[in-house]
Design a protein around this nucleic acid. Structure first.
Length: 637
RNA sequence: GCCACCUUAGCUCAGAUGGUAGAGCGGCUCACUCGUAAUGAGCAGGUCGUCGGUUCGAAUCCGACAGGUGGCUCCA
């Protein structure tokens, strides 16, 4: 019998009989690997464990602890779910059922609309499929055969997909369920031990809203019960820190349906936090070489025509209003205003770069279904800036703005982020050459800052490529806030120029950038990041003064007023309640410090200090604790 | 916008099969004067999202609209 040589990741190699399967090899491996392997990578190709190997090659087992392993695991889970749905609803037709970042889904075409109780039924059916321990078998078909197989089963989406495939289709079977699939899969259904179906949503066939809408069922699965439980706990935790829930509980903001969807009311406590964010932002921008500008909320429709917004962004703009037989439109962006300011005085090459910042409130028509708390609204304030520079200054300005962004995000507790460069979309303006220059400038800027990035193809804005910084919050979720965009187009459209050393007119380049993105979204992210327990410098109330009985009210009032006079945001709770109750309420409101004063403290002129989440810190002198608080405020802890 | 689901007091939620509303928290008042996450009692508070229909009778059934939630598509 022919021998083949298999090389393992540790560099060692061994000979096996040709036709050996990875499963055979796995039997000779240590217990842990044997238990956790679900597929194999052979010569960089992912294969099922039971695929016979007939040539020399490198072999690596894919375990359920790896990202690739989880993808395979979830993909197999999706098959099992589809199988269960098919058993319960034989008329169901299936579209795609891939693994996603957290779990898997399957798109189903079914006349009956599924509800949460149906999910339980499907779960029960899945359970019996898992228990039956059907092996996953791969079958190769000719296009013809596959089409016939799925036609006979009424699987029109699968047939359509087979027609689209370049390669001959492969089909997986487990039990009596057949699915078009590239694979690989776990060896058998019993691997899918612990799972839960999470929700149902609508999704369009091939993601196009002109196509029929399918029902998408989301689920999660793990090989170990503890991991499933952990995951469900994390979901619960995310729910607990939902900014919409906390916004209500902490009285930070509201969205009122009499005012309109996607329009935010900032309540005093939320508005205070916004004030802190804005103050810090302004301070940093002045230090960072920016000047401030302000612009109006509406402008003539002509402006938006000239800028290209009506052509390329029109569907996101509010309808025009008629004023003096002229049409005006509320602004979706600030840039055209800044361009006009630029044009108001002739610029010399010596004037550049110019950096103009504005907390500019813009309005965008967002389709009703996309609105979401503070994260997606119709009226929001961008922390916008436009940098006008000479072509020879572009790279330096890109680097400068990247460093600036990162440093500001860090001040808000975000030191973990993913960076993407989005390239030219299908709908764009400007020359290919300019797009190339701009894209190169962004990439080089990131490289110079030593920041790793991924490419987001075709995701740029219509006027130029962009860098998006997606920050990671305290529980690892990713949020898009910052964006840095190079624009050759608008300076061209508005005929911006500066007089060069040569006395001739030259075209400046413009960089659009928003660091926090919008104050609304950033606030939402901030609430979730801190789970509502804001650091001292942001907390709307920093100290709650809690007298134990009314005999301490006078002393408590003195403390409270002294704190206010020293710029510490204090709140006095002089209700006739038990101190335990007051503490509970201050805790619920996530107030960072509580000063408890009873007879002892009045006597000794001290304070009993309690810190949110930490508990009793003991007795302090007034001056000592105030100094400690001031230090924490200035260091933004 | 599309699909599904949801909307009852300030908040969280009960209210089988239609007989026109209830709790807890919060608020107010009173009593209690209390030591590190809920003192007790009382009171007030609701056109049951809006409009229309079915019915002797609708929070409950039907329809439209509005708002929200989970997604799709889009995005700061």
């Amino acid at each position: 019998m022919d021998k083949i040589k298999i090389t393992f990741p540790d560099g060692k190699s061994r000979e096996f009989d040709a036709g050996v399967t990875a499963m055979d090899i796995l039997q000779q491996m240590p217990g842990r690997l044997r238990k956790e392997s679900i597929a194999v990578k052979f010569n960089d190709q992912l294969l099922d464990l039971n695929k016979p190997l007939n040539e020399d090659g490198t072999l690596e087992f894919i375990t359920i602890t790896s990202a690739e392993g989880m993808d395979i695991f979830w993909h197999s889970s999706a098959h099992v779910m589809a199988h269960a749905i098919k058993n319960l609803y034989p008329e169901a037709k299936f579209a795609f059922g891939p693994p996603v970042e957290n779990g898997f889904y399957y798109d189903v075409d079914l006349d009956k609309s599924l509800n949460p109780e149906d999910l339980q039924k499907i779960e029960a059916e899945m359970q019996s499929i898992v228990q039956a321990d059907h092996p996953f078998e791969r079958k190769s078909f000719s296009k013809q055969e596959a089409v016939e197989l799925f036609k006979e089963k009424g699987e029109t989406f699968k047939v359509e997909q087979i027609e689209r495939l370049g390669e001959p289709p492969s089909v997986y079977r487990e039990g009596d369920f057949y699915d078009l699939c590239r694979g690989p899969h776990v060896p058998s259904t019993k691997y899918i031990k612990y799972f839960k179906l999470l929700n149902i949503a609508g999704a369009y066939w091939l993601g196009d809203e002109k196509n029929p809408q399918l029902q998408r069922v989301y689920g999660i699965a793990f090989p170990k019960k503890s991991r499933l439980d952990d995951y469900l706990v994390r979901l619960e935790e995310a729910k607990q820190r939902d900014h919409r829930k906390l916004g209500k509980e902490l009285d930070l903001f509201s969205i009122n349906d009499q005012i309109g969807p996607g329009l935010v009311l900032w309540h005093p406590k939320g508005a205070f936090i916004r004030h802190q964010i804005e103050s810090y932002w302004k301070e940093r921008h002045l230090e960072g070489g920016y000047d401030f500008v302000h612009s109006p909320h509406i402008a003539k429709a002509d402006l938006w025509n000239a800028s290209g917004h009506l052509d390329f962004f029109g569907e996101n703009m509010f309808s025009p209003m008629d004023v003096d037989e002229m049409q005006y439109i509320v602004k979706p962006m600030n840039c055209p205003f800044h361009l006009q300011i630029y044009k108001s005085v002739t610029k010399s090459y010596r004037d550049l770069p110019i950096r103009w910042a504005e907390l500019g409130t813009v309005y965008r028509y967002e389709r009703s279904g996309v609105l979401h708390g503070l994260l997606r609204v119709r009226g929001f304030t961008q922390d916008d800036a436009h940098i006008f520079c000479r072509p020879d200054q572009l790279n330096a300005e890109v680097v400068r703005v990247i460093r600036f962004s990162v440093s500001i995000l860090e001040a808000f507790g975000f030191s973990d982020y993913d960076v993407f460069v989005s390239t030219r979309p299908e709908n764009y303006v400007g020359t290919l050459e300019n797009w190339q220059t701009a894209t190169r400038a962004l990439k080089e800027g990131l490289e110079e800052c030593g920041i790793e990035y991924a490419i987001d193809p075709g995701e740029g804005v219509f006027y130029g490529p962009k860098i998006d910084i997606k920050i990671r919050d305290s529980i690892g979720r990713s949020w898009q806030c910052s964006t840095i965009q190079v624009d050759f187009n608008e300076p061209e459209r508005f005929d911006l120029n500066f007089i060069g050393q040569d006395g001739e007119k030259h075209r400046p380049i413009m960089i659009h950038r928003a660091l926090l993105g919008s104050l609304e979204r950033f606030f939402g992210v901030l609430i979730e990041h801190y789970a509502g327990a804001f650091p001292l410098w942001l907390a709307p109330v920093q100290v709650a003064v809690l007298p134990i009985t009314e005999h301490q009210y006078k002393y408590a009032l003195q403390i409270h007023e002294k704190l206010l006079a020293q710029g510490i945001r204090s709140q006095l709770d002089d209700r006739s309640e038990k101190v335990g109750y007051k503490i509970r309420q201050a805790s619920t409101l996530k107030i960072p410090y509580m000063f408890i004063v009873g007879p002892k403290e009045v006597e000794d002129k001290t304070l009993s200090v309690r810190r949110h989440k930490e508990g009793d810190l003991g007795t302090f002198q007034y001056a000592g604790i105030v100094e400690k608080i001031k230090k924490q405020v200035s260091s933004k802890q």
